[in-house]
């Protein structure tokens, strides 16, 4: 629906503004998997508070905005095998590739980084093939 697209565009502008603030303010690339990963594996110990506060902002803003919405649903599957398999793939994959939708997608592609573009093509292609396999062939999602 076009109204969803407009909200998508507005949300995108907000996401990009966050990335711009993080880049020009702190000199860092706003990549969710890198920010979380550095906390998880200890490689970002020196910047732990910066990372935690960033993630706090990410988690809290939806709570503040939620009262303005009639209903909010993630429509997340209740298939725990799928959730755990997906979590492992996302965790391992983003760390090996050094980025996810925000780092490679938003920040990388906007500076025409060849790595960002290649990574984005790979995960979109894999995601598309994944949906074909899991939804249309196996019927598990």
């Amino acid at each position: 629906m076009p109204i969803d697209w407009i909200w998508g565009l507005i949300g995108g502008l907000l996401i990009g503004t966050g990335g711009a603030i993080y880049l020009l303010g702190n000199g860092k690339i706003m990549g969710a998997s890198g920010i979380i990963g550095g906390l998880v594996d200890g490689s970002g110990r020196d910047t732990a508070l910066e990372r935690i506060l960033f993630l706090l902002g990410v988690a809290v803003l939806p709570v503040i905005l939620m009262p303005f919405y009639r209903s909010v649903d993630t429509h997340l599957t209740d298939n725990y095998y799928a959730l755990i398999a997906a979590g492992l793939l996302v965790g391992v994959g983003t760390r090996i590739a050094n980025g996810c939708t925000s780092g490679h997608g938003v920040c990388g592609m906007s500076r025409l980084s060849i790595r960002g573009i290649v990574a984005t093509c790979c995960y979109i292609l894999a995601g598309g093939i994944g949906v074909i396999i899991f939804r249309h062939i196996l019927g598990v999602i």
């Binding site: 979380i36 990410v58 996302v90 994959g93 996810c100 790979c122 999602i141």
Partner: peptide, 22 residues
Amino acid sequence: KNLIIGSVMFGMGWGLVGLCPG
């Protein structure tokens, strides 16, 4: 290969449940 293999793994997980880290 890390960029390619990692991104393909991530994409598979992303497609499977529709969630990425952010």
